[in-house]
Design a protein around this nucleic acid. Sequence first.
DNA 1: ATATTTGCAAATAATTTGCAGTCGA
DNA 2: TCGACTGCAAATTATTTGCAAATAT
Lengths: 137, 137
Amino acid sequence: MAENDLYSVLSSHGIRPTQQRISVYKYLLSHPVHPSADTIYRALSQEFPVFSRTTIYNTLNSLEKSGLVRSINIQHDEQRFDTTTEDHGHFLCIECNEITDFDITRGVLITLCPQGYENIRGDVFITGFCPKCKEKR
Amino acid sequence: MAENDLYSVLSSHGIRPTQQRISVYKYLLSHPVHPSADTIYRALSQEFPVFSRTTIYNTLNSLEKSGLVRSINIQHDEQRFDTTTEDHGHFLCIECNEITDFDITRGVLITLCPQGYENIRGDVFITGFCPKCKEKR
DNA sequence: ATATTTGCAAATAATTTGCAGTCGA
DNA sequence: TCGACTGCAAATTATTTGCAAATAT
């Protein structure tokens, strides 16, 4: 996506499109491996020498609030971030630590939700070995 | 469950049954609301004046390793603990902050897992409003 | 007897907050 | 211009670790 498009995507979601916010969002879009705040920080601070962690957190929070990104709590020790905001599942490999997406329809998620409860958001997390690491063992 | 039974459950899982461990496990069994480490700490330190957080964490880790409890990362800021270790779903109410269990068969979880991946553990987390809080709004 | 467990205090690590200076509409 | 955004440093919070004393088998 061109810089210009990112600019208008952010604007149209009520987020003032600053350089920092554009680059965080761009990074997320171009690295669909569910990076953590710290991963983003380390990557972007190389490119732009001045880039504080505070800004990363602020940006991620704004993006999440606006619905442009989704945070993933598959591990208790750090949040991961995803630009796919429609419902889908996440697989965490305990060997290589990579998170991959997999399909899961909203319909299925609704079926899982118990009667009388109002489903705002659903997550399916599966932990185990990815095909690559499974083979290596 | 009687103190004696707890004692042998722990032993048979390779956990040396100390007073502290017994009371943590007993607390979890008798308070099936998925308490956090801190909730357990605050409750037990009233009963037993000397009870350190370290011990709570040590105990929860041992219990988890032995398969007697399961930790739930439905929120990024704290782990919650559950004595139901078979697969099931969790619902977090964003109003009252309570976590309730709901049924989900292992069969369904296996269906959800993508081909080629080895499923070690599956979690289904749904966030929203519980029936009580839904009504109040 | 001895290996394990406890609990204190200190260390880590992720995230949040206060606030002065800066930037974008 | 003016309110929103940035970034530093400091605060907060959950969890882990080192180690001497206590405890269970």
